[in-house]
Design a protein around this nucleic acid. Structure first.
Lengths: 255, 255
DNA sequence: TTATATACAGACCAATCGGTCTGTTTTCAA
DNA sequence: TTGAAAACAGACCGATTGGTCTGTATATAA
């Protein structure tokens, strides 16, 4: 298992020493809860459900989590951390694959597909998306955090696409931001359909189709500017909007 | 209000006479519950929540619904019925607009965009998608029904796209099914992001972008089977894709 | 009018919910 | 070894949940 850090970001008050056994049990609870939340929703998953699935008791649960909201925060952070890590891994792999931004972007998309394709074993699902559909159940801080996660993920794609647009001219007027949001949208939407149709391949097909679209956008197009010279047209040099939210501890989630 | 038929399909045991007053109250409950379910989820929305929002009491609720699952079924059917009706309305309008399948498909997509753009007033959301994220809360029948709804919606698009593919050759290898599922996926996924970012325009932008993609797929392509003129190259019957995105009622204010 | 079914109000109930508390076992530094 | 904190078990509790039941107002057909 992984289960190294207690909280990825948005530090909470659970900053113990995390001797060893504790973190293990904590992870056990979260791992047991994730599929339940994915199937029944957060509010629809009772503590007894989680405890029954993990083989533990209330004593254990409330030793590791202050209350259910604290648990929700931990679950969301766990999911977000895992997914973000995968994103960055795929991004790094893509960067190592080529110097050309277009090839990099395509490799990035491909890497995500391959990853999804490999781990289609358990029921696919995104805790973040599930939580968004019952967002009012959560504290405002967690609500904001979930939105930030989507923004961050979107920013990863946007950055790649921005680099492509800076050099190549698309066959249709598109912005890096719209393209980035479309990947996320397709991902989350296809996840819903994939589950509803009980067809894990649907998600992969949709991701592949987007890559095809992306390739079509730039197929046979010429580089806009010279490689070395700064591109004259379009493409504001860097950040469209700051996706780099500080990772400061913004806890104080006193109820 | 609308509120005519008690249940769209999937007949239940609530088949009263629906004199008048009753159906009105029933609709009032459902209408009050929808935004709550959209924000808090189904399991997270208690009867007291619904009753408080609708200004009614338990007596009224259980007069119209056998239990909460019966209410869930009614809510899902209501949402599905509304959305399906809109689909078919847009489809009919598109069919009346042109004889060319490509123009029809584009008009169909456009009609859906316009509709979404107009009704961005309340928080956007899809009860079906929300329910999918806590699907195990519901009886197997309702689970199946939800999946059927997605399939039906997808089939509406697929039919249109199939007609296009029968005549035009796409610039990339795509199937009508994949394209149809992609529309639904983009719709549901963009809905999530739209809500998470509190940006109603995101959904419209994504739908528009898909239409652009679709147009790009068939831009400048030749008809596969000659309709009238057997000219193999060039000259698609009309415009490749309708000019710019129409800026009909573009009042995307409402921050 | 009266009779009767519909439409609704609201007290009431058992089960379940999240959460607390006390007690026992395990871990690990001194 | 010892002792104290950490890790966990499980009885217990009040609040909330979905759901029932009785009573009343309204509408409609006779």
């Amino acid at each position: 298992m992984e289960a190294k850090e207690p909280g990825i970001m948005m530090a909470g008050q659970t900053g113990h020493k995390m001797a060893h056994k504790g973190a293990q049990t904590r992870e056990r609870i979260l791992a047991a809860a994730e599929p339940l939340v994915l199937r029944q929703g957060y509010a629809g998953t009772s503590l007894d459900d989680i405890l029954g699935a993990s083989g533990l008791t209330k004593g254990a649960f409330f030793h590791h989590f202050k209350d259910k909201s604290d648990f929700a925060r931990a679950l969301v952070e766990r999911c977000a951390g895992n997914d973000t890590a995968r994103f960055e891994r795929c991004a790094a792999a893509a960067e190592a694959a080529s110097d050309d931004p277009l090839e990099q972007a395509l490799a990035f998309l491909k890497a995500m597909e391959d990853f999804i394709e490999e781990r289609a074993k358990p029921l696919p699902g995104c805790v973040l998306a599930a939580c968004t559909h019952e967002i009012m159940q959560f504290e405002p801080e967690l609500q904001a955090y979930i939105g930030q996660c989507f923004r961050r993920w979107s920013a990863v794609y946007e950055q790649k696409f921005e680099a492509v647009l800076a050099r190549y001219k698309p066959a249709a007027p598109v912005t890096a931001r719209d393209l980035a949001e479309q990947v996320i949208a397709i991902f989350e939407g296809a996840l819903i359909l994939s589950r509803s149709f009980n067809d894990p391949a649907l998600l992969v097909r949709q991701l592949r189709q987007f890559r095809q679209y992306f390739a079509l956008l730039f197929a046979g197009r010429v580089a806009q500017g010279a490689e070395v010279s700064p591109s004259p047209r379009n493409a504001p040099p860097s950040r469209p909007y700051s996706g780099q939210a500080g990772r400061k501890t913004r806890h104080s989630s006193r109820a």
